[in-house]
Design a protein around this nucleic acid. Structure first.
Lengths: 149, 149
DNA sequence: CAAGATTGAAAACTCAATCTTA
DNA sequence: TAAGATTGAGTTTTCAATCTTG
């Protein structure tokens, strides 16, 4: 079967996307590092913070973040030792573990969030027009829908 | 100073972008893994392959890929031990090292490329209209220009 | 046995030296 | 001394068990 290689416009789109991804990631993690937070940390903290009780099951968190349970488990061990989350065996299911954001974890997120949002604006959101923002959302949603079995 | 939080549309754009990024990455690396190649491997191999002599200086490659020299050096050690690249001291500059794609490295890229391009199409490029492709390119270029000191 | 989660070893990446040549 | 590159130690991520409860 013949491969359909990318034409010049497609190639350029792919390269530009990849480059944006790389540079934006570097910038955002550099900025977050000032608060002693990695992107992974921030994602865990902010996800937990959005729950009414600031807690989630490990499996639930892993699925939501698209992380393997193994990776999350190791990461939570480190965050726990830093006092950012607690781990408790839950009554719902004797096998399960429930992760809860501590006050320190919440405070750390509160401290990092304004700077992070400012970075996201400065290096991404504010560089686009309203139309472009809409367009990006549509594209991203399409890709996400496609990839979410 | 007051923080300008993201409004709902901006928030949605940012979340969708992040989710796309995560899922697309997972899918592409899963697909590449079938050929025994990581995304990092693929990037090194394809970058070298685009040079006339299939070779580059380490520093040049590191700058182009936005990798630290350390990361690249370690990665090249592994690729070298797999027989994918060679390392030679160059005559131009006694301090420098020149990395060259071996025939095996070239063959591995040739083997992986069709499948990779097919993945990129299926999960990204072909999901967009011409207009969306252009729009994405414009956005990405803008972000890249902004972030490229 | 399957599901939820953890563990330990190996691989990959980062950070702080170190080494060599300009 | 600075530039180009590597090294080794520590951290993070992955891979393959393992453990415990449903």
């Amino acid at each position: 079967m013949a491969v359909r290689w990318l034409d010049p416009a497609e190639e350029e789109a792919w390269r530009a996307y990849r480059r944006m991804r790389t540079l934006l990631d570097l910038q955002l993690s550099r900025d977050l590092a000032e608060y002693g937070v990695s992107e992974a940390d921030y994602d865990v903290l902010s996800t937990l913070s959005e729950q009414a009780d600031r807690s989630m099951r490990v499996s639930e968190l892993a699925q939501w973040m698209h992380w393997t349970q193994t990776r999350l488990s190791h990461h939570l061990t480190r965050m726990q030792s830093r006092g950012l989350v607690t781990r408790e065996t839950t009554s719902e299911d004797g096998r399960g573990a429930r992760i809860t954001l501590t006050d320190d974890g919440w405070q750390l997120l509160r401290a990092a969030a304004p700077g992070h949002v400012t970075s996201v604006r400065e290096h991404f959101i504010d560089l686009m027009s309203q139309t472009q923002l809409k367009s990006l959302t549509t594209i991203a949603r399409r890709v996400v829908d496609h990839l979410s079995d």
